[in-house]
């Protein structure tokens, strides 16, 4: 494994669409280790921040800097609604591995391992598109895990899942974290943030309001916006 891409820094990041400034002056560092949860109400810019950091969108101001070049290939993103290719569950994982030039026995080994660890081994031959929403999200996690990313971004991965499927996804996220991958995840679910976060990045209207250790954030939020959000007061 070559030198780490971490830390990654967002430097004075700005993003505009349709004349509206959706991300404004966002400066933030992703350090190796802690599970980072990006928290904020709808429209805070959580998903945009992930897409900018991952390189799916180009910022209109500022820049994204990873420690080493070619960082995009060592990241993965799990979307709120995963796109499953029209082929079997196993072939979906194979496809991601093929794009990273993982071939032969190594591909089979990695694919079988991640399907096993996401509880999908029995469903490997099924067409991915007939799996349930929860199974599809686990498959998306397996597909991301297979390429052994250094950073895994997750965009509201449980937003359309029931409690049982949500627990399964959270367990897998923790397993990926324990295997050494940096987790950066968005959510608007406070319970989930408490369960998973080591540190919180709190966004409001495209700006960084607070960046703190999870305990500090939940016990003593520094900003009025964060206090209002934690108390469930309407905030947008």
């Amino acid at each position: 494994m070559s030198a780490s891409i971490l830390p990654g820094r967002l430097e004075a990041l700005g993003f505009e669409a349709g004349g509206r400034r959706l991300i404004d002056g966002l400066t933030l560092a992703f350090e190796a280790g802690p599970r980072t949860v990006i928290l904020g109400p709808n429209g805070a810019g959580k998903s945009l921040t992930l897409r900018l950091a991952h390189g799916l969108l180009a910022p209109s101001a500022g820049r994204v800097v990873w420690r080493t070049a070619g960082a995009g290939r060592r990241q993965a993103l799990v979307f709120q609604r995963p796109v499953m290719l029209r082929r079997s569950a196993a072939a979906n994982v194979d496809y991601a591995l093929a794009l990273r030039r993982v071939t032969g026995a190594e591909r089979v080994r990695r694919r079988d391992k991640v399907l096993e660890r996401t509880g999908l081994a029995e469903l490997a031959r099924r067409p991915a598109r007939v799996l349930s929403t929860g199974e599809q999200q686990r498959l998306a996690l397996a597909r991301a895990w297979a390429i052994e990313p250094e950073v895994l971004f997750l965009d509201e991965p449980t937003a359309s899942l029931d409690p049982a499927a949500t627990r399964a996804v959270e367990a897998i996220v923790n397993a990926i974290h324990e295997a050494g991958t940096k987790i950066v995840m968005t959510t608007h679910d406070l319970g989930q943030a408490r369960r998973l976060a080591d540190e919180i990045v709190f966004l409001h209207r495209g700006r960084l309001v607070e960046h703190a250790a999870a305990e500090t954030f939940f016990d003593a939020p520094a900003s009025a916006e964060a206090r209002a959000f934690l108390e469930g007061d309407l905030l947008w």
């Binding site: 799916l56 995009g72 979307f79 796109v83 082929r87 390429i147």
Partner: peptide, 26 residues
């Protein structure tokens, strides 16, 4: 339109996506 973000995230360039889309649209 459906696949672009996912495929780009997986590291698939547009040229490489041609066989993918032909297969998935079979």
């Amino acid at each position: 339109a459906e696949y672009e973000e996912q495929l780009r995230s997986l590291g698939c360039a547009p040229g490489r996506a041609i066989p993918t889309l032909l297969w998935d649209g079979r």
